[in-house]
Every structure is written in structure tokens, then in C-alpha cells.
Design a protein around this nucleic acid. Structure first.
Lengths: 343, 343
DNA sequence: ATGAAAGCGCTAACAT
DNA sequence: ATGTTAGCGCTTTCAT
């Protein structure tokens, strides 16, 4: 027993007009008498008429809504990005549909499929850790669906992209630890094939090189699911601690890894920063109250969302097909706190 | 330039059938020859045919999707609830559309409006702090849209609801502080008219009463936006600290207030738990690494989402109108850590 | 068992 | 300036 909304037909009947006239009046079309328009608008207002977006979508093949695919909304970085996206979308009259891949390729495919079939006008996506095959996105893109990548991007598709300056962020983090007196610096990071992982690893290596510290492969630990699955982080920390030459500091590459690392070290009774310095990539709003307060690299998440949405709107609303694409790189910010300060 | 998907018409033409036959074959209707069905299904499979959900929605006035309205996804509690909802929805073949009110009444109305017009089959909602007028929801409900409330509920609508046992949670928190030796216990909470606020306040009062501690109005501080807006928490803490008789412990009623309180006290150089014991309602996964580790009341957020979604599906799929409704109350859990343990 | 046709609500090309 | 008509993709009633 679903409810009946008022339709254009009801208005037409009541006013003795045709549906097309009503439609024209409502959408403020050019050829319409001021009088008729007034009449229709007034009546529509009175009945609190709302056009049926489903019918509009079916007709126009657009929906003024856009889809977001992220791996987890329960992640400060992504929820902040989403807020940035929404802030722009809201102003421009777009509705935002949020979906989560939970780092699963299958879910990512299902979500993009669904969003496309729901006639979203565009897609904002950050890839799941499992994603290596991009055909689901390529197919949609080839068919004309505008797509903008953010954060976890791919080289395999020519379109707009927004990322944080991950290279610099990791460079800063590493250099800061070196300058604070740490020498044997490990890197705890996520799935090795993700774009952000490569960028951060490169920054880490560059900082070591610039300070004449040899790169040691064994000091880089990968957590495929970014610490999302049970025990992943603990194992990585364990193996770092068991190294013949234990590291004296760690650069962690994600929110979950940063907090997981602090927790694991606390359980192992490793004192931070005395026995282990930490700098973490994180957008947690509460790093200040961690024990110890966490030195961190913050990504401009909100801004990243704004930029991504603006780029997407540009793609959607452009009259001409766009052929030159841009990858915007936004600066990260280092905040120094206790976790990296030698007592 | 939008992309063309394969339609039922394409299949019909290719196979020399009518669209109705194809439709019947696809939906496994009663009167159809096994042979034709096989043919159609095979061909559809080959072309990777996907029915257009927009067209289906327009026709059937249902969408197999449901809408969620929460105030902030950047809140551990809500993101966990959403994950619970999704886990059930996914299994049952429903798609989930997430939207945020950002604690704004206007946004809440706009979101519910939009979701309804998009033919969601049902709504899961936790009210914004600004919401006192429920006519937007009542109107939809009266027209037959199934709605289930969770967490922040209302008495003004007869439907299924799910909440945490906020009374017990606050009671436990307060009693625990009393047993730990604290005597002058404050309550830092959110908007006074929210259901959860009243329930928690009642639990707090009951625990005091049961332990013969007089209730003192001045020890209850409300943060209208739950610490979401700048300085709200700091001011509340400030005014507690400036009381002629300063409290020796605080029960905080939300995630943001709990962390905000720890941060504010740290800035004020008030030592926790020595000079101030804290027990907080929070679903943060990292309370363990806070300084000090935070004693907390945890809400069964994931389970709450599961229950809410199951209830909603029951409403949606019931053949007969449902007239008796249920309010499920789920237990909270107290975890004792350093912030409430007298040295 | 299959097809023809109507209709969900809306828009727009084509009359007039 | 307004009306008529067709059609978006799908389901379903009514013929056959």
C-alpha cells in the first residue's frame, strides 16, 4: 500500500491544461504565458507538488545525483572526504549516494554497477585494496559515465584525479624522525599495489637516501587490509620487534595502522617515544589525547572531497567532451607531538 | 552522451519474441515454456543484461532500496550502526542509501523528502538534535512508508524502534564511579530534548539516588550540538571546573563529548583520574590508547543496525498492515580502564 | 504459451 | 502559447 503523490497530470486536469503545458510552466520554459505559469506554479505550490525524480531519471537518463564508493566510512579520512564532497554537492544541487566496498573487489563492482544502473550522473571513487582489474570502471567510463578518482587512484584510466602529496608526507615524516635522532626507521604500510602505498614508500626511501641512511627492505611491512582484519597489525609489529636489529622508529601509513601500532606497542610494553618513535598518517581528530600524543601527517581530506566534486561537476556539465585531464595534488601537514620527540 | 544499456527490447528483437515474453522469462513467471525461458536466460546472461531499476521503480513503486538518515557518519557509533544495517541489507538483497543531517533539521527534512521521492521502500532514522517537529516523517508514514527509528527515537510515532539501554548504561557508569570512590559526579550530555539524553539522565539520577547522593542540577551540563561545534565542550568543562564545589568525576554522554572532555581537561592540567574520574559513552575503537585509557559504556551499535534493518524488512514485506509495534532495548557494556580508577 | 497494448510520471519534438 | 503524441524500460492485463 504505497502512497500516491500528486503528479503533473493531476495539476493539468485540475487546471484544464495539458500535461506538457504544466511541465513547461514548472520548468520555466520559454514559450509560456506569464499568466499560465503563475497559475500552475501557484497550484503546484498549494498542493506541495514534487516532481518524481524516478520518472525524470527514466526520461532524461540523468538524476542530479552522484555516487561515492569508499572502502569504509568508519575511517576519519573517508568520512571527512565525504563531508567535503557533500558540501559542494549541496551547494550545486546534487544529491550524494554513499556506498562502501569494505575493501572487497566484489562489493566495489556491485556498488558501481548499482549506482550506474540508478543513473547517477557521475562517480567518485577510491579503490578497494583488492582491486587490480579495472574493467568494471572502464566499461562505465567508456560508455560515458564521468568518473573522478581520489586518494587511491589508478594509472589505467584517463580522467581527473585528486590525491594528497603522499610522497612529501612520507618524506616529511621520515625526515622529521631522522632529525629527532632516530636512525633505524621502519615503514608500516598497507597493500603494496595501491597508489598511495607506492607514493608513500617512495617518499620514505627518498628521505632516507637524502640523509644517507641505507634502505633496508626488511623494515617495510605490508598489511594487506590496512589493519582492518584481526591481528594484522599485531603480527607486523611483532615481526618488526623480532628483527635482529630492531627499528627505533616507525612511519605508519594509515589511520588504523597508526592506532593499531600504538596499541600493539603498549601491549608489548615498548615505550613510545623512548624505545620507539612514531609518526603516523592519520586524520583522527583525537591524536592529541592518545598516549602518547601522536605526531601525524594529516591529509587535506575535506578539501580533497571538495576538489573531487568540483572536478566531477565539471565533467558532468561540460558541453564538450573533455580530453585533457588533471591530477591535483594537495599538501599534507605534519604536526609534531610527543610520539616522535626523544625525551 | 550517456551510455546505452541492453534492454528487454533488445533481447526480444534478437530472439524474435515480444517484450512481455522476455519479461516473463526473466522473472520466472508461471506460464512460460521451459525452452523459451532457457533461451532468454542464456541470451540475457551472454549480454550481461541488467534490468533498469529506475524503470522498475517507476513501474512498481518500490526499489528494493532503503534510506538511512543519521546526523554524522564521522561518528563511530553511527558508522557501526550503518555497518550492521548493511550486513543484513546485503543478505536480503536490499540496497542502502546513506545520508547525513549534520544535526540540522532542514537537512533532515530535505534528506527524507529526497529518499521518499526516490522510492525507497523504507527509512531508518536517528533524529537530528534540532528536530522537534515530526510532521515530515509523520506525513510519509501516514502515506504508508515504513519507518524504523534507532537510537534517537520519538514517542510521537507508532512504529518499531531500537535503542540501547541508555538508562542502564548511565546507571552502570555512575554507580561504577561511586564504587570507585568518587562522590561529586557531574554529567556532561547533549541536547536536552533528545530521547537518549533523557534516558541517560534518568539512569544517572537513579544511581545517585540508590547510593544516597543528592542530585545537584548544577552538575548537569548540556551541549546542544554534542560537542560538534567549536568550543562547546570546552565551555561546559570550564563551567564545571569553576563551580564553587568542583566535581570529582564526570559521566559523558557521547563520543565527541568523551574525547572532548579528555582533551579539555588535559589543556586545563586537570589530572585524570586523580583529580577527575571519567566514564564516557563511546564506541571509539581506540579508547585503549587514550591518555588515560578511557573507561567506557559501549553501545551495541552493529547489532542495533542489524535489528533495525530486520524490523524494517518485516514492515516492508509484511502482507498485512502491522499494528503492534515493538521497541527493542539492547544492552550496553561497561569496560573499566584507567580513567575511573583512583590511584 | 505468447503477443499486443496500456501505463507508471515526465519531457520534448512536432503540430497548430 | 498550448495541445498532441511518442517514448524512456519495465510489468501486467487482456486477448489469442
Amino acid at each position: 500500500m504505497k502512497f500516491e503523490a500528486i503528479t503533473i497530470k493531476d495539476i493539468a486536469k485540475a487546471l484544464g491544461l495539458s500535461t506538457s503545458t504544466v511541465s513547461r510552466a514548472l520548468r520555466d520554459s520559454y514559450e509560456i504565458s506569464a499568466e499560465t505559469r503563475r497559475l500552475v506554479l501557484e497550484y503546484a505550490e498549494k498542493l506541495n507538488y514534487r516532481p518524481n525524480p524516478i520518472a525524470q531519471s527514466l526520461k532524461e537518463k540523468r538524476s542530479r545525483s552522484i555516487g561515492i564508493v569508499v572502502c569504509e566510512i568508519a575511517n576519519n579520512f573517508f568520512s571527512q572526504v565525504i563531508n567535503g564532497i557533500e558540501s559542494v554537492a549541496y551547494k550545486k544541487g546534487y544529491y550524494v549516494i554513499i556506498s562502501q566496498s569494505h575493501e572487497s573487489f566484489e562489493r566495489e563492482v556491485a556498488n558501481t554497477q548499482y549506482l550506474a544502473s540508478r543513473s547517477v550522473d557521475g562517480l567518485l571513487i577510491s579503490l578497494s585494496t583488492e582491486t587490480t582489474d579495472l574493467s568494471h570502471l572502464n566499461k562505465l567510463h567508456d560508455k560515458g559515465l564521468p568518473i573522478v578518482f581520489f586518494d587511491r587512484i589508478t594509472e589505467e584510466m584517463a580522467t581527473h584525479k585528486v590525491i594528497a602529496n603522499n610522497f612529501n608526507g612520507a618524506y616529511q615524516a621520515t625526515e622529521h624522525l631522522i632529525q629527532a635522532g632516530f636512525r633505524r626507521i621502519a615503514h608500516l604500510t598497507i597493500s603494496s599495489h595501491l597508489s598511495i602505498t607506492k607514493e608513500r614508500l617512495a617518499g620514505y626511501k627518498a628521505a632516507l637516501a637524502d640523509h644517507n641512511i641505507p634502505f633496508d627492505e626488511t623494515l617495510v611491512k605490508y598489511c594487506r587490509y590496512g589493519g582492518l582484519i584481526e591481528g594484522e597489525t599485531d603480527q607486523a609489529i611483532e615481526s618488526l620487534l623480532n628483527l635482529p636489529q630492531r627499528p627505533d622508529a616507525i612511519v605508519t601509513a594509515s589511520d588504523k595502522l597508526s592506532t593499531g601500532c600504538l596499541a600493539a606497542l603498549a601491549r608489548k610494553k615498548v615505550s613510545v617515544p623512548r624505545d620507539m618513535g612514531i609518526v603516523g598518517f592519520t586524520n583522527s581528530p583525537v591524536t592529541e589525547i592518545f598516549h602518547p600524543a601522536l605526531t601525524c601527517i594529516r591529509q587535506p581530506a575535506f578539501e580533497m572531497g571538495q576538489v573531487a566534486m568540483e572536478m566531477l561537476i565539471q565533467l558532468i556539465e561540460s558541453k564538450h567532451p573533455i580530453t585533457t585531464f588533471e591530477t591535483r595534488v594537495l599538501n599534507t601537514e605534519l604536526t609534531v607531538r610527543a610520539s616522535s620527540t626523544r625525551p
